[in-house]
Design a protein around this nucleic acid. Sequence first.
DNA 1: GTGAAAGCGCTAACAT
DNA 2: ATGTTAGCGCTTTCAC
Lengths: 343, 343
Amino acid sequence: MTPPNPRRRTLTLRDVSEAAAVSEMTVSRVLRNSDDVSAATRDRVLKAARALGYVPNKIAGALASQRTHLVTVIIPSLSNLVFPEVLSGISAALDGTGLQPVVGVTNYSADREETVLYEMLSWRPSGVIVAGLEHTPAARAMMLHSGVPIVEIMDTDGEAIDSVVGISHRRAGAEMARAILAAGYSRIGFLGTQMPDDHRARKRLEGFEAALGEAGVRVRAREFYSGGSALLKGREMTEAILGRAPDLDFLYYSNDMIGAGGLLWCQDHGIDVPGHVGLAGFNGVELLDGFSRRLATMDTCRREIGFRAASIIAARAAGGPADPVRVELEPVLQPGDTIRRAG
Amino acid sequence: MTPPNPRRRTLTLRDVSEAAAVSEMTVSRVLRNSDDVSAATRDRVLKAARALGYVPNKIAGALASQRTHLVTVIIPSLSNLVFPEVLSGISAALDGTGLQPVVGVTNYSADREETVLYEMLSWRPSGVIVAGLEHTPAARAMMLHSGVPIVEIMDTDGEAIDSVVGISHRRAGAEMARAILAAGYSRIGFLGTQMPDDHRARKRLEGFEAALGEAGVRVRAREFYSGGSALLKGREMTEAILGRAPDLDFLYYSNDMIGAGGLLWCQDHGIDVPGHVGLAGFNGVELLDGFSRRLATMDTCRREIGFRAASIIAARAAGGPADPVRVELEPVLQPGDTIRRAG
DNA sequence: GTGAAAGCGCTAACAT
DNA sequence: ATGTTAGCGCTTTCAC
């Protein structure tokens, strides 16, 4: 004697409008918090909607209104700690604007970026935030013609499609090189990732080498890796590079995690850091705050980058001017405990 | 003498259909790889679409076809390492199915979960994957009536809405307790997060205490934290708990990161681990593979959980049976180097 | 293998 | 303050 399935199709505005005895249009207005509805009707409608368990269909809404409240965010990875931090800045900026971030991941592949971008753009977002300035020609074209604000983030070394928020990785690398030289190190090794599409790491190294070059110094040894636990890789690479080039007095890592692995290895092997060997990483990840010795690094303002980028999109969505914005932030050198005090 | 803005509105099927001199319907068929189109027309259409830079409007498509290819994924956090791992399993399972994950983050708040869920469901996804079994009544109701497959993940201790894939955190806690007792420890402290909505951590502790209780042992001291760098918090809490209760011989941490912080603190302070104090965490995060000593932990099969959950959705989307699936995985105890060998 | 008509569930724009 | 009408850009269905 159970009642027959009370309803199978999902509810529409019409159902609510019938239940509340008003037009669909009025229901629509109430549900979008439009101004011009009397308190009484509003109440009746909300009650009816809640009672029925109505969930609006944003697909129909978006088609009719020609706008979504989605912001596309395209990043290389989620396991690289750095990007969740950017996302948190984006969320913070979007909170309360009615805009919602939708994340796509490229795995550091330009082709995959193109695919993801195409998928995402076909949902007609209100804006796009994408990591990096390097894209396939097709991806660039899509963004140029999308008609929505595009913000490229993380990197400012190159030509932007529309707006940019980031740091100059070339300058960051150069600055670190100068700090290392100023501290009196001169036999320098580099340890990094082997990823052709990680342009920021590449630019950092270029800037680093250029600045060393100005002082007549060159990188004496390099070690690359890909995949695996970064901390562990940092250990292994450190052992390897010091095995091959025992006279090195400084190791520059392309990110903090491998740098931390190197630091642990040195500690385990009784190597005097920063006396015998100095170490530095890149990013300033908070995660490492618990280590007994603080790795020298460069904070890259990830949260702020996300926040500023999302703010640009939000401002445009709110009807602000469509002029390209360019924000270059200053990464902050954090000497930590693994680089000798200069002088 | 620049040409006037060649086109402002975004392109539609009609534009492609005119360019290729076929009906909109044929274009639609080509773009969806439908079967019945001659190779010649297909070619002409694709060429035209590419030349124009046409990007289909999925909003219109979804409205007309009454289906999206979106899978909603709702997780508490992205900075907790564990969830990106789940996501990677989900992506792997969805790859090639035409389904696309869309992530929402709740920050461990049930209310926020309800909001996010409402937003997401209003996009009419093909399925929902949500972390945990505890939801607000309204959220539960929404999922029950959504008409799409729901998979609750991570936890199996409770009643599911539809399908579940996870581990029993109660049993995981109990198993760890038994391993600790078997290794001969008996003066046990617990260190964890103070988050009312982290039900899995709560269940783990419950299971842990229940199993200790069976042996007549109780937890002698507790220490809680919230926010901040987990590694650093682990250090601070370890110092605090051992200050208050110096006779403890085992510290059980509710996650690996604070456990690792504790391990570092012990190392820095010359405390014999696991002789004087044993340590264990939870999750089995790969990140820690680079530490000199491996923290005892319990691997929770996060990638597999994501993979299995997404596979359930994919199977249903492909027309499979709609029966609820229940998958309980076995977490694996990894004794590492921080717990004495039993016996 | 291709096309024409109808309509998915909303909202913009205009009444009233 | 509320209602009416006409689409948004696709896909479904049915014709040919």
